[in-house]
């Protein structure tokens, strides 16, 4: 049962991370290799405000959201102004910068020892045994909230503008809208909702390790988005399910732990390559049938 609760909480966190990444990678068509670092930044904002500033759960998560929104703007600032592949480069660089910051600023972040002692929010009068269930309910609640938010967002003017911009930037500008502005807004918004996943992670694990937010995590999130769906909310959930369960399946298959981590990344890499072959093959076939009609 404990194992089930643990997996369910992780699933919820991944669902939040993937639906947030979907806005950037799927809807805006900006490939990001820094989602893991954004996730980590939110978690450290959360943990540091709770530990160092003794702030309770709700205001702390507000701080994490605001902090991540700022980080989103920081990432968007150079990359939205330059054409081409600067977004993927900036996110990749940011991935390493955040790692170096959390790893090297050990007086603040605990460095390689990690950051422990993050308090969990408590429901008054609830016993210790029920605590995981409380965190699970909290996760489900927040995840539902995030999905509802994205449901509304994608059907609003903002969502339409994002799809229009990624469709035809030149025409988007010709319609009087600023590409830089909408990119900054959507990247910042996605980082802000990622912070909700970070907050849950921090208070559930009670401990942060810089290695939990490295490039592997970013690739994992990218794979989740690609596997699920680039645009559908349901797909984000499916993607989260796959990347949560795949490592468990591998573990049951009896892979030795030492090589397990590397093998998992190799599998994710192969999945990404295979998926790209599948997608372009499917589109080619579709085009052929369209032409025959």
């Amino acid at each position: 049962m404990e194992y089930f609760v643990h997996t369910a909480i992780i699933l919820n966190i991944y669902a939040i991370l993937i639906v947030s990444a979907q806005l950037v990678i799927g809807h805006a068509k900006l490939i990001s290799l820094g989602q893991g670092a954004i996730f980590g930044a939110g978690a450290y904002f959360m943990a540091l405000s709770m530990i160092r500033l003794q702030i309770p759960f709700v205001p702390a998560i507000m701080i994490a959201i605001a902090g991540n929104a700022l980080i989103g703007l920081l990432i968007a600032w150079p990359s939205a102004r330059l054409k081409g592949d600067y977004f993927v480069l900036t996110t990749l660089g940011f991935q390493f910068i955040i790692f170096q910051l959390t790893y090297n600023l050990s007086s603040v972040t605990g460095g390689s020892d990690g950051l422990g002692g993050i308090p969990s929010p408590r429901w008054p009068g609830l016993s210790d045994e029920s605590q995981p269930y409380f965190i699970l309910s909290l996760s489900v609640f927040i995840t539902a909230l995030v999905f509802m938010l994205y449901y509304r967002l994608l059907r609003s003017d903002f969502g339409r503008n994002i799809r229009a911009m990624s469709d035809n930037e030149l025409l988007y500008k010709a319609s009087g809208r600023s590409v830089i502005k909408i990119k900054s807004q959507l990247i910042s918004f996605s980082a802000a909702t990622t912070a909700l996943g970070s907050g849950l992670y921090a208070v559930y694990m009670n401990y942060l390790d810089p290695h939990a937010f490295n490039l592997d995590k970013s690739i994992l999130i990218l794979t989740g988005v690609m596997l699920g769906s680039l645009t559908r909310l349901r797909g984000a959930l499916a993607g989260a399910l796959i990347i949560t369960l795949l490592p468990e399946v591998l573990r049951f298959a009896g892979l030795p732990a030492a090589q397990g981590a590397s093998l998992r990344q190799i599998i994710f890499g192969a999945v990404l390559v295979g998926l790209m072959f599948f997608i372009s093959w499917r589109r080619k076939k579709q085009n052929q049938t369209n032409n025959n009609e």
Binding site: I31, M226, G269, L272, V273, M276, S280
Partner: peptide, 30 residues
């Protein structure tokens, strides 16, 4: 080459490249 031939878009080539990178790097570390 096969990806380009089947009309893969810029982003798809990029993601495939990321995938190959992961495979090679983790094969090395394995």
């Amino acid at each position: 080459k096969p990806l380009t031939n089947s009309g893969a878009e810029h982003n798809e080539l990029m993601v495939a490249s990321v995938g190959i990178m992961m495979i090679i790097i983790y094969l090395i570390s394995l």
